[in-house]
Design a binder for these strands. Structure first.
Lengths: 400, 400
DNA sequence: AGTGTTTGTGTAATCGATAACGCTAATCGT
DNA sequence: ACGATTAGCGTTATCGATTACACAAACACT
């Protein structure tokens, strides 16, 4: 009973900010005068202005943005709709958007749909009612056919919309996406450059409504076709449901690894469409006694923070998450400003190959001891960026 | 010039939602009647109501929340102030808060301070002007002495505030934190239970304004004191600045590891205050040829997603991030509802030991082959939860 | 038929800030 | 010295929704 505390409704001056009318009355001037003092517009004597400002200083007046928004017909609010803020790929995008918004005096309303289509719809309606000036959205959710109608309603209501990350084709709607196809192509060519002739692609089947995953799978198919791979030299390794729980996924990966290593024509390299999948796979490979990269090379996608610190560290395609968020925000603000739209409807940002250790040094089936990987990063590889580690923010992600 | 697109100011019906007055005029009724039809309150004939609703259906009326907020004197908005949304520890908290808010019909305004104190202040002022009904904040930033004044201003303005994660002691302000001290204690005792007698603690010096890190360091000191460790058996291993870039940190860790392994009285186990630090350290240890856990055990803190998938997988203290967010939101809403406050000002949520492989099986200095760790998780250990992997959401974090 | 009650609808003030407009008194120009 | 300008301040409509109040018509009851 001790460590309790109370907060009365009004301890001493628990008063919300006074209104401009209350201020005016207390000062025996008109609201217009107070307004002119605050905004320093119109004609006002220096003495009156000083008097008003002094009173504001002591009384602590904070103009209500609610009232301002109503009369000015603009809210300074943006809607940001994401599938899961916890996802390490999405949060840098949100951060970048928030940054851009803040600089322009805007605030963002964060909407997490949790991959729930219905919730996505309700959120958009709410944002419209809140009179947000624009929306950036990662339209990632299992969606019925024609289930994009509510997206178009935004534009119909005069609210600019920019889609992000998901390459959902909607005529008239701008979108900013990573070059998933090209990225996978680069990854595959990196592997062939290292001498691999049999390359597998890991993926989760229900990619119908996941346009990023879809593009990565397509990119793999295109790349191996382009390189003249026989179908059996480029197996697509499915590992069950995107919506399954992690438990099930982990088991399926383990299963897959077992099956894979039993095959006589098994691939010497694997492309994983996400780093998280790659990391889980590396883990299973380790448990199964398969040495990475010597017995099996693996390349990931996204370049999440952990990718640099696994053993072996993960060669991966870095997705320009921050740039994507920034770009989406820039385009949204251009629309809000009413600029003539000249940018392409679909804007594609390049991915970057980050060479680390998980694909080895170019002798894929070598019998090197697996012990040390420290030199592995210094490969010959064409133009790829070697990991300089000065990635993302100066502020590290170590805290807390 | 091809792939361009245009959106006129009004393609066909690019009209914002009509107002209730416009509706009334078109229907030749009064605004009150329209209002009664929409809200189904007061007396209204069934026929009139049907007529109004039909018109709304075709014209697409969306009541302005801006106007509603003004007249109702409540905005349905919450401010959520975080240091970095990209941090994998914070984002689940935000997600949980957002969840709770949505269920209650509230929206959240996300504010990312980027550890900038000045920005934090500006944000709080903005939130006050936006008339948010409450604020949840992770008050993590280098703060001058007395730099919490603006936090108290929230309460003075009648806006409830709940602090999260950072155990910043402010009389009268509720806070929800993890049991960092206790968590570290559990971790240390886990190690001593496995037979370790020399245990090091990794940390970043400037913990003055990082109350979570501070508590973890204090927890370590308390635990080793309690266990009767001599100071030299419980070395505190500093590795430079929290605000340094990752590059520098990585180098310092590598340096530390080298120095550490050269010591004749080196610890047999290390406690890292965050998983990210632990993972980076494990990596350096691997590069240095030190086998984990056989030559050196390591326990982390947080239980980030990657912790389960490193090799060896990381034994760690799981921080109840989602529960913390939920709890903070619950308490905030209780305050908003005006409930009598009975909960303690400082609410501490327990951490949970997740036993994986990085601390081995209880024979710390064994000469076991380092090759396989798969059985390591099945230790005898008292009551700790073995990793069931059914953590967090059903929806995996693999996507995109 | 007359009074009382209910039903359906309209009018207008309100929320807090903005800003067009109008008025008075001081200053300017010749 | 007198009209013209202008500095300084007040009044009031507005934004869009809410809601107390007013009022007329319909109905009920003695």
């Amino acid at each position: 009973m001790k460590n309790q505390f109370k907060l009365e409704t009004k301890p001493d001056s628990n008063a919300a900010s006074p209104t401009i009318h209350e201020l005016a009355k207390r000062l025996k001037v008109s609201v217009a005068t107070v307004w002119r003092a605050i905004n320093n517009k119109g004609r006002i004597s220096a003495t009156t202005r000083a008097r008003v400002l002094a009173a504001i200083d002591t009384l602590g007046y904070r103009p209500s943005l609610v009232a301002q928004n109503l009369v000015n017909q603009r809210t300074g609010l943006l809607g940001v709709v994401v599938p899961m803020i916890g996802n390490t790929v999405y949060s840098p995008m949100v951060r970048a958007i928030e940054q851009e918004a803040f600089e322009r005096g805007y605030n963002i309303i964060l909407c997490d749909t949790g991959l729930d289509y219905d919730r996505e719809r309700r959120y958009l309606d709410l944002l419209l009612r809140r009179r947000v000036e624009g929306v950036i959205m990662i339209p990632f959710a299992p969606r019925p056919t024609g289930g994009e109608r509510h997206l178009l309603e935004l534009e119909k209501a005069g609210v600019p919309l920019v889609l992000l990350e998901q390459d959902l084709p909607l005529p008239g709607i701008a979108r900013v996406v990573a070059d998933n196809r090209g990225g996978i192509r680069t990854a595959v060519r990196h592997l062939t450059g290292l001498g691999h002739h049999r390359i597998g692609f890991l993926y989760m089947p229900p990619v119908a409504w996941d346009f990023a995953a879809r593009a990565r799978l397509d990119g793999f198919r295109a790349a191996v076709t382009e390189l003249g791979f026989a179908p059996e030299a480029a197996p697509e390794l499915a590992i069950g449901d995107l919506l399954a729980n992690e438990d099930a996924i982990d088991r399926q990966i383990a299963q897959l690894v077992t099956q894979l290593m039993a095959r006589h024509d098994r691939p010497t390299a694997i492309v994983a469409p996400t780093d998280m999948l790659a990391i889980k796979t590396m883990r299973c490979l380790w448990l199964a006694g398969v040495r990475v990269p010597d017995e099996l090379a693996i390349v990931g996608f996204d370049d999440i923070l952990a990718a640099a610190h696994t053993t072996p560290s993960l060669t991966t395609m870095r997705q320009p998450t921050a740039a994507m968020g920034t770009r989406a925000a820039e385009r949204l603000f251009a629309r809000i400003r009413g600029d003539t739209v000249t940018a392409p409807e679909r804007e594609v940002l390049p991915c970057e190959l980050i060479v680390r250790e998980s694909c080895g040094t170019g002798r894929p089936m070598s019998t090197l001891r697996p012990a040390r990987f420290s030199e592995a990063a210094r490969v010959s590889g064409g133009h790829p960026t070697t990991d300089q580690t000065k990635r993302r923010d100066v502020v590290p992600n170590l805290v807390a």
